[in-house]
Design a protein around this nucleic acid. Structure first.
Lengths: 233, 233
DNA sequence: CCGGTTAGCCATACGTTGTATGATTTCGCT
DNA sequence: AGCGAAATCATACAACGTATGGCTAACCGG
């Protein structure tokens, strides 16, 4: 590829002062777009460079390696969350539900990222720790002791993580139990899971329909009720 | 490498009847070992073949591609869980806790696998669906309605998944809050997270020590209390 | 027993990936 | 004017997953 084909602006050295320059932020934005559109596997350094109209190695001047790019994406997601309006509510329960919903929505906005984000989240930077503020606020308002707040928030966030993980791997907001669960259950050896088989059978009477929104709301209500009961409110 | 170096048994064709042969199971066992010892990234097809003393392409006769190998590993983990002795207890609460602990332990046994396992778990095969039987059994014994059992189990398993995810990314069974959380909190702009800062400060009075075992137990107790309250027991 | 089919292994090769190295150009500062 | 640092690009390399095809021994119907 020596012939001057399409490489119009492809000069070699440092860009002149008026010229467009690369930045960490522009790179991460482009990367996030690729991940959202086509999944994490599609986000290769070469592909990323191509959409930026840039040589692959140029990226390495702003980010040390690919892992740093992915970590940067995690940052973006949590930053998005921190910039959203903080939840309010008449009661501490409502405020807590608001915080939980906001958190879930932030994770849900980028389903292709969820696993990596959650895994690296702990190491990701200061951005992530601010994220828990609304939870602390709601439970502080509820009157819990510091240590109880800490434990309760951990528990709730773990639930949200697990829920989001499941939600991200199934790519729909609704879910028909019939083909996916029932058919599989019916293939089991009868002695294998008697209770499960019976319950699923009884469930068959009603609709076998699952909605993630409802599942999340129910899960939250369980935890809120549990917190109230467990920590004596 | 044409010189006959160390390739002692390295003949070309199909192995004779007495000779050692490859098998899906042997491959998966070796793969799991690599993943446990050195992480998922270390488990390349070439590396896997090398530890099996075999040509990389031989693997493809037993498993269609690398994704199938990883999926097979997920199967192994859940199979391990299904072969463990089912939990029992005087009350439904104890039985439920037993199921939860067994589930957590199964995931914890292979921390390098956790993310992929959980993500692909839904699609992984019949092995995974049997896994929920003990949970169904305990809540059925508690007297919940079928639909409530279904929702409650989902919620509990989501919590366990989220917890295990966090547990797997931090590689210790204990966790000092001081350096990791406090130092980070103290770097925040003061208006950024006032409640969090105050609570962490008050926490500083007691020990800033976190134990995953305790965190899990507390989370479970919150959940159990929530089930009882939410579904009227 | 025999001949064809297939199972199971290996060698080679291709395209893609992340990134090390080093050249090239311009900026910012003295 | 000159010089170090900043930001880009070109080239190159090792490692990856796997397609293709060749080899050998087992299996099986006659």
């Amino acid at each position: 590829m020596v012939k001057g084909g399409k490489a119009v602006a492809g000069r070699s050295g440092r860009p002149r002062v008026g010229e467009e320059r690369l930045s960490r932020d522009a790179i991460l934005q482009a990367a996030l777009r690729i991940v959202d559109d086509e999944g994490l596997d599609a986000m290769t350094m070469r592909r990323l460079a191509a959409t930026l109209g840039v040589n692959p190695m140029s990226i390495y001047h702003h980010l040390p390696n690919k892992a740093a790019v992915v970590a940067g994406l995690a940052e973006l997601v949590f930053a998005e969350l921190n910039n959203s309006t903080p939840p309010t509510g008449e009661s501490w329960q409502e405020e807590l539900l608001g915080a939980a919903n906001a958190y879930r929505n932030a994770l849900r906005a980028h389903p292709n990222l969820a696993f990596q984000v959650l895994a690296d989240a702990a190491a990701v930077s200061d951005v992530v720790v601010v994220t828990v503020e609304p939870f602390y606020r709601a439970l502080d308002r509820a009157g819990l002791a510091p240590r109880d707040i800490f434990e309760a928030v951990n528990t709730l966030i773990d639930f949200i993580h697990g829920f989001s993980l499941g939600e991200a791997s199934v790519r729909a907001e609704t879910f028909e139990l019939a083909p996916d669960l029932v058919d599989r259950v019916s293939k089991l050896k009868p002695g294998q899971a008697p209770t499960l088989i019976r319950i699923v059978d009884e469930l068959g009477a009603d609709g076998l329909h699952y909605e993630f929104d409802d599942g999340f709301a129910i899960g939250l209500s369980v935890f809120v009720a549990g917190i109230a009961a467990r920590f004596g409110l």
